[in-house]
């Protein structure tokens, strides 16, 4: 279905020619890394690490990828993890991010994932703002056979979140996922609203089941095609909503999502899942090695 569109000279070929690791070669590595959106600092680090190890020597392609894997692992310092599940009672997950990043679709994917594991899921349609956002999530809930709590268009999203949280405890669901409207991190009143939703979820959980704290996971959805602005997104959303992890959506395209690397480093936010298409099964747990392999894939 896909064509591989080779625009740049493939690094594999360059290495095959048996070129030495010199300044020109290191600049090619830098360019390749910049094209993944990892930013100047991370790209320089990978380039310099390769320079230190291999300068004036001939390298194999696998040496390069190996070195980059080490550097990225060192920068990201994360493994592969699912969401933080509640020790008892339902796990409440809140999903946030900028407009059009892939929040609602990622929620459908989470539903599919947890349904496959035999868990029961309730959704909160907390985007009461965007045109037909409630309908969109409702389509997914129906297709995937999950309960959904909705409010009227224009109603208070925090109240939907409250009701969904209550329903999760009262109806013995395993998982509750709350959608929120897309917003830009610079819109301070909308960012404050996320904080309010977050606090109300906690209050609702506490009311129904004393001593509970929620949400257990706040997932920030990032569009893999995003560039350096994603750093500002991570900062803004972390501050406003206490994010605990990242979903990197749209990695099925030609974008590499490299900006996740400095984000992980600066904000200590682990990437938990990646989105690989528009269907609910196009989703996977994040794995550093696969991620770095793909950074070197020049399509």
């Amino acid at each position: 279905k896909k064509t591989v569109n080779v625009l740049n000279t493939d690094l594999r070929d360059i290495v095959k020619e048996g070129r030495l690791v010199d300044d020109a070669f290191l600049e090619e590595i830098f360019a390749l890394m910049i094209r993944t959106d990892m930013g100047v600092a991370s790209a320089s680090k990978i380039r310099d690490d390769i320079g230190k190890k291999f300068r004036a020597r001939k390298v194999e392609f696998s040496d390069l990828v190996g070195s980059a894997k080490e550097t990225v692992r060192e920068i990201m310092q994360q493994g592969s993890a699912d969401v933080n599940f509640a020790e008892s009672g339902p796990t409440i997950i809140m999903v946030v991010g900028v407009n059009g990043a892939g929040k609602t679709t990622s929620i459908a994917k989470l539903v599919y994932r947890y349904k496959e594991m035999g868990k029961s899921v309730v959704l909160g349609a907390g985007d009461t703002f965007r045109a037909a956002a409630v309908e969109q999530l409702t389509v997914w809930a129906n297709r995937l056979n999950a309960e959904i709590i909705t409010g009227k268009s224009g109603s208070d999203p925090a109240s939907v979140a409250w009701q969904a949280t209550e329903a999760a405890y009262n109806n013995d669901h395993d998982i509750c996922i709350i959608d929120t409207a897309g917003r830009l991190q610079t819109q301070s009143n909308l960012m404050d609203e996320l904080g309010r939703i977050n606090r109300l979820i906690n209050k609702a959980a506490n009311k129904v089941s004393e001593g509970s704290t929620a949400p257990h996971e706040v997932l920030l959805v990032l569009d893999a095609t995003a560039g350096q602005n994603a750093l500002s997104q991570a900062k803004g959303f972390s501050e406003a909503a206490n994010c605990t992890g990242i979903v990197l959506a749209k990695l099925d395209g030609t974008a590499k999502g490299g900006v996740a690397i400095p984000i992980c480093q600066e904000f200590g936010l682990p990437v938990k899942f990646i989105g690989l298409g528009e269907t609910p099964d196009a989703f996977a747990k994040f794995d550093v090695d696969t991620f770095v392999d793909a950074l070197f894939d020049e399509n």
């Binding site: 959106d37 900028v98 095609t225 030609t254």
Partner: peptide, 9 residues
Amino acid sequence: MTGQDAVRS
């Protein structure tokens, strides 16, 4: 907010 992929797409 698109990054480096803009040229390709």
